[in-house]
Amino acid sequence: RAVAELERRGLLAGIVTQNVDGLHQAAGARRVIELHGGLDRVVCLSCRERTPRAELERRLSAANPRWAAEGRVNPDGDAALTDAQVAGFQVVDCVTCGGLLKPDVIFFGENVPRDRVAECFALVGAARSLLVLGSSLAIRSGLRFVTRAAELGLPVAIVNQGPTGADADAALLLDAPLGATLTELAARL
């Protein structure tokens, strides 16, 4: 909510997030680039059509009316299922081409689509500064935008608990808990 409030006040031109949970949008943020995609939709691996995850859930429920995940289901949707629970489960395919569906997220080993990376670079290129919030920048996926900001001579501020892969490029480092820090920042501005 604090990030969305900073955007609402005109202090952020846009948000590049590595999160796939849609929480920025749920909090009211408008210009959000989901670098690694979003769990709220699925994509066909053949025709690339994207559909809402809720639609897939309805189709799966209709195809498996008596099936229910028993046991613990984690917040990210992972669950430990027995062979008996999996037996007989009917998978549904893309309604357009019959292709295989997957969550519309970038998994480890996959590449972020070039147009999405270009959109992020354009946002950084048009910025006056870059604020990094709650990322270790341990992988190149997000780190490349900090590297570009530094190459452009933009000031970089990082708020994170612990070191990041871009500490050397930061004009400001704040080792602090993100929730309390952002709430305080939004209240003071």
Score class of each variant (00 low, 15 high):
Arg1Gln: 07
Arg1Gly: 06
Ala2Tyr: 00
Ala4Arg: 01
Ala4Gly: 02
Ala4Lys: 02
Glu5Thr: 06
Arg8Cys: 00
Arg8Leu: 00
Arg9Val: 01
Gly10Lys: 00
Gly10Ile: 01
Gly10Pro: 01
Ile15Met: 01
Ile15Val: 09
Val16Trp: 00
Val20Thr: 08
Asp21Gly: 05
Asp21Asn: 08
Leu23Val: 01
His24Phe: 03
Gln25Leu: 04
Gln25Lys: 11
Ala26Lys: 12
Gly28Tyr: 00
Arg30Ala: 12
Glu34Gln: 07
Glu34Leu: 04
Glu34Ile: 06
Leu35Glu: 03
His36Val: 02
Asp40Arg: 06
Arg41Lys: 06
Val43Trp: 03
Cys44Asp: 03
Ser46Tyr: 02
Cys47Leu: 04
Glu49Asn: 14
Arg50Val: 15
Thr51Gly: 04
Glu55Val: 11
Arg59Val: 09
Leu60Tyr: 04
Ser61Pro: 02
Ala63Cys: 05
Asn64Glu: 09
Trp67Val: 12
Trp67Thr: 09
Ala69Pro: 13
Gly71Lys: 06
Arg72Asn: 09
Val73Cys: 07
Asn74His: 13
Asp76Trp: 11
Asp76Ser: 14
Asp78Gly: 15
Ala79Met: 13
Ala80Lys: 11
Ala80Pro: 00
Thr82Arg: 14
Ala84His: 12
Gln85Lys: 05
Val86Thr: 04
Val86Met: 12
Gln90Arg: 13
Gln90His: 07
Val91Cys: 06
Val92Asn: 11
Asp93Tyr: 07
Gly99Lys: 12
Gly99Trp: 05
Leu101Pro: 08
Lys102Phe: 07
Pro103Asp: 10
Pro103Gly: 10
Phe107Ala: 14
Phe107Ile: 05
Gly109Ala: 05
Glu110Asp: 11
Val112Tyr: 10
Val112Lys: 07
Val112Leu: 03
Asp115Ser: 10
Asp115Leu: 09
Val117Trp: 09
Ala118Gly: 01
Ala118Arg: 07
Cys120Ala: 10
Cys120Leu: 05
Phe121Met: 12
Leu123Ile: 02
Val124Pro: 03
Gly125Lys: 01
Gly125His: 00
Gly125Ile: 01
Ala127Met: 07
Arg128Phe: 06
Ser129Glu: 13
Leu130Cys: 10
Val132Phe: 05
Leu133His: 03
Leu133Lys: 02
Gly134Arg: 12
Ser136Phe: 01
Ala138Asp: 14
Arg140Trp: 14
Ser141Tyr: 06
Leu143His: 13
Arg144Glu: 15
Phe145Arg: 03
Val146Tyr: 04
Val146Cys: 15
Glu151Pro: 00
Leu154Thr: 11
Pro155Phe: 13
Val156Gln: 06
Ala157Gln: 10
Ala157Asn: 08
Ala157Thr: 14
Ile158His: 02
Ile158Gln: 08
Asn160Leu: 12
Gly162Val: 11
Thr164Arg: 02
Gly165Tyr: 04
Ala166Ile: 03
Ala166His: 06
Ala168Pro: 00
Asp169Val: 03
Ala170Arg: 05
Ala170His: 03
Leu173Phe: 09
Ala176Gln: 10
Ala176Phe: 10
Gly179Lys: 03
Ala180Phe: 00
Ala180Arg: 05
Leu182Ser: 12
Leu182Asn: 08
Thr183Gly: 13
Ala187Trp: 11
Ala187Leu: 09
